[in-house]
Amino acid sequence: MSSPESSPYAETKAKAPTEPRKAEWPLWEVFIRGQHGLSHRHVGSLHAPDAEMAIKNARDVYTRRNEGVSIWVVEAIHIAASSPEEKGSLYEPSNDKVYRHPTFFNIPEEVGAM
């Protein structure tokens, strides 16, 4: 085939861990505010030893193309989230309140834009 000569060799194996595993750098969630007056938006996560490094890393990982002018980072363990099982009790009550939407009300055409 088109590739250079293959050389057979023994399979590479990582060294067996000789000491207990070191803890990973904590996980941080990253929020970026874009240029156009929108709020900060979640863009992803990364690992960093502290907040200062998390912001520096977020700059490199998430804003290489002018995606933002402000970064928030928060350690993932500090985020409380609703669970999918609560979906019904949390969000269904708003289903039968269609009058909260402006389209619920018919405004006669002669009234004009409202």
Partner: peptide, 28 residues
């Protein structure tokens, strides 16, 4: 594992991981 560069690639990744250990631990 028998391609022309498998060994080199995995060795480079292993070396980077091993050589970076003191940085990861030091920063923590």
């Amino acid at each position: 594992g028998n391609g022309p560069c498998n060994k080199e690639r995995l060795e480079a990744r292993n070396k980077a991981w091993d050589d970076g250990a003191w940085v990861r631990e030091g920063m923590m």
